[in-house]
């Protein structure tokens, strides 16, 4: 009789297999994996969970990335070998071919709305901060938009560099300062000199004579027009008075 009891007790002393806790935490979505990837922007640390890419940062060391991630996102982080498939997807994302899934849990609903809206800005185009604020239904929250973009945990991937000040100042950039922002925008084909010249002369919109539609400078629909076929406007009222309607794609004003 005693032996059965002792044996049963031994059965209770069994240990969970190695890595069990990590697997459970990963399944519950509480552990992210990360790796260092070589990209067109140089080496970037990228973290992802079951739901998608959760963070990306150019950091001097893995330790600093882990510390930053723990502070900003709050989940555990495990370094793994870079999966080949993800490396290809990252290339596609950065070259604008295909979009990755993102994991934005842990951010406020407002910050999530800002970042999701930012994802809609196409490569080679820029928008002012006020545009994001208006599009997500908080037209007065321009500064809050700036804060949310400054704290973007996935710069480059979620293109916060495509949001610029309407006065033509490039603005600061969490992913490596104004210089980096300038560099990435140039890489994406934005004509910064033209953009800044327009902004400095107070011209916020460009209209195309043939279509009588006005757009944000850099809008896709204005790209093929010749420079002499543009007219420029200070504001919406001026454009409308001249008989122009807002572009339905870049939405410089509510149509």
């Amino acid at each position: 009789m005693a032996t059965v009891m002792i044996d049963l007790k031994a059965l209770g002393g069994v240990k969970a297999p190695a890595g069990f806790a990590e697997r459970v935490l990963a399944q519950a979505g509480l552990t992210d994996s990360y790796s260092l990837f070589e990209t067109v922007l140089g080496p970037v640390y990228v973290a992802w969970s079951g739901q998608g890419v959760s963070a990306a940062m150019r950091c001097p060391s893995a330790g600093e990335f882990e510390e930053w991630f723990r502070k900003e996102v709050g989940r555990r982080l495990v370094r793994v070998e870079p999966p080949a498939r993800l490396a290809a997807r990252i290339e596609d994302q950065l070259s604008g071919k295909r979009r990755l899934e993102f994991d934005l849990r842990g951010l406020t609903p407002f910050a999530q709305a800002v970042l999701l809206k930012t994802l809609e800005i196409r490569r080679g185009e820029v928008r002012p901060y006020g545009w994001i604020a208006r599009e997500i239904g908080h037209p007065a929250a321009v500064r809050a938009v700036g804060t949310a973009l400054a704290n973007n945990p996935i710069p480059y991937f979620i293109p916060c560099h495509r949001v610029v000040r309407s006065d033509g100042v490039i603005g600061n950039y969490g992913g490596g300062g104004p210089e980096a922002k300038r560099q990435i925008l140039t890489l994406e084909g934005v004509q910064l000199a033209r953009l800044q010249k327009l902004a400095q002369s107070g011209m916020r919109y460009e209209g195309i004579k043939s279509t009588r539609i006005f757009c944000f400078p850099t809008c896709y629909h204005g790209r093929r027009a010749r420079e002499e076929n543009f007219v420029f406007f200070h504001d919406e009222a001026e454009a409308r008075a001249a008989g122009y309607r807002p572009c339905k794609d870049c939405r410089p004003a509510v149509a």
């Binding site: 059965l11 209770g12 002393g13 069994v14 240990k15 969970a16 297999p17 069990f20 806790a21 459970v24």
Partner: peptide, 11 residues
Amino acid sequence: HQDRIYALGLA
């Protein structure tokens, strides 16, 4: 609790 719950599952 991982060890105890695993042991429980095994038993």
